[in-house]
C-alpha cells in the first residue's frame, strides 16, 4: 500500500536527485574537456543550457553567457530550480515527509547531501574547487543509492524511486546526445564519419560513458557506434534504452500501470525505429531526440495521471 501523495514525493525526489547528479556530471566533464582545448579555441559553455533544458531561465537572469555565469546558474543558483543545489534542496523537501518510509540512514544521506550542497555550491563554481565539489555531490548521491539498494524493501515506494530516477536519466541523456552530437555533426557534417577521437570521446565522457564504451563487446566504430551505444546499448545503465527498460520493469511492478506500460512500449519502439547511420545527419538526430523527449514526457504524464491524481478524487 502506498499513498498517492507519498508516491508523488518519492518520484519527484528521485527525479531531482538524478537531475542533480546528471548536471554535476555534465558540468564536471565539460570543465575537464575545456582545459585540454588549445588556447586559440574559445570554449563554448552555452550549449550546457541546452542539455539541462533551462536556457530561458538563464536568459532572463543573466546578461552574458560566460563560464562563470553559466556554471553558477547550473550549480549554485538558488533561483534556478534546476541547479544542482536547488534540485537537492527540493529532493530533500519531498523526502522530509517520507521519513517513515525511508531507511533512517537514507534520510541521513539525503541530509548530508543537502548540507554539502548548501555549504559548498557557491565556492564550487570556481574552477579550482569545482571538480571536488561536483565529485562530492556525485559520490554522496551514489552513497544514497547504495543505502537504498542494500537496505530498502523492494516495495512500491522503492519502485517509485526507480521510476523517477530512470525517467530523469533517460530524459537527460537524450537531450545531452542531441546537443553534444548535434554540435559535432552540425559543424563538420562531411567529416562526421571520420572518427575524431577527442571530440567524440568528449561526448561519451560528458555522459560518463567513455570507459564502458571502450570496453564494449560490439565491434562497430566511429560516430554511428557512439550514437548507437548511447541510445541503444541495453547493458549500459546510462543509455536511453537501459533507462526505458528500467522504467518499464518498474511500471510492471505497480498496480494500474497499463497506460504507463503502453507509453513505455511506444518509447522503446521509437528508440529502435531508425537506422543509426541515418542519425549522422544533425537534423535527423535532432528530430529523433525530439520524438524521444515527447515519448518520455508521455510516460511521465501517464505516471502522474495513474498515480498522483489524488486531488481529482473522489469523482
Amino acid at each position: 500500500m502506498l499513498l498517492s501523495r507519498v508516491a508523488e514525493r518519492l518520484y519527484w525526489a528521485a527525479r531531482y536527485l538524478e537531475r542533480a547528479e546528471g548536471t554535476a556530471r555534465i558540468v564536471r566533464e565539460h570543465s575537464n574537456v575545456i582545459v585540454d582545448l588549445p588556447l586559440s579555441v574559445t570554449p563554448a559553455w552555452d550549449h550546457l543550457l541546452g542539455i539541462t533544458g533551462n536556457r530561458e531561465g538563464f536568459d532572463k537572469r543573466y546578461d552574458i553567457g560566460d563560464e562563470t555565469s553559466i556554471v553558477s546558474f547550473l550549480v549554485a543558483d538558488s533561483l534556478n530550480p534546476g541547479s544542482v543545489r536547488m534540485s537537492i534542496a527540493q529532493a530533500r523537501e519531498n523526502l522530509r515527509t517520507c521519513r517513515d518510509i525511508l531507511p533512517v540512514q537514507a534520510w541521513n544521506a539525503v541530509n548530508d547531501l543537502y548540507l554539502t550542497a548548501g555549504r559548498d555550491a557557491v565556492d564550487g563554481v570556481q574552477r579550482r574547487y569545482r571538480s571536488r565539489f561536483l565529485e562530492k555531490v556525485i559520490a554522496e548521491h551514489q552513497r544514497l543509492l547504495g543505502i537504498l539498494t542494500s537496505t530498502m524493501s523492494r516495495d512500491e515506494a522503492y519502485t517509485m524511486l526507480r521510476l523517477g530516477r530512470h525517467i530523469e536519466r533517460g530524459d537527460m541523456v537524450t537531450r545531452a546526445l542531441d546537443v553534444r552530437a548535434g554540435l559535432l555533426l552540425g559543424e563538420r557534417p562531411e567529416q562526421a564519419e571520420l572518427y575524431d577521437d577527442l571530440q567524440w570521446s568528449s561526448v561519451l565522457r560528458s555522459l560518463s560513458a567513455l570507459q564502458m564504451y571502450n570496453r564494449r563487446s560490439a565491434t562497430g566504430d566511429g560516430a554511428t557506434e557512439v550514437i548507437r551505444f548511447i541510445l541503444g546499448e541495453t547493458s549500459f545503465p546510462r543509455s536511453v534504452a537501459y533507462c526505458l527498460a528500467g522504467v518499464q520493469s518498474a511500471a510492471r511492478e505497480l498496480p494500474l500501470s497499463e497506460s504507463v506500460l503502453a507509453a513505455c512500449r511506444a518509447a522503446i519502439a521509437e528508440l529502435s525505429s531508425s537506422d543509426p547511420t541515418a542519425l549522422l545527419d544533425a537534423d535527423e538526430l535532432h528530430r529523433k531526440a525530439d520524438r524521444l523527449q515527447i515519448a518520455i514526457g508521455t510516460i511521465n504524464n501517464r505516471i502522474v495521471g495513474a498515480y498522483f491524481g489524488h486531488t481529482a478524487w473522489p469523482n
Binding site: M1, L2, L3, S4, R5, A7, E156, M160, L254, P255, L256, A306, Y307, H310, W313, P314
Partner: peptide
C-alpha cells in the same frame, strides 16, 4: 473513510 493510494481508494 478512504485513503488515496496508487492502487485507488482503500
Amino acid at each position: 473513510v478512504w485513503m488515496r493510494t496508487i492502487d485507488g481508494p482503500k
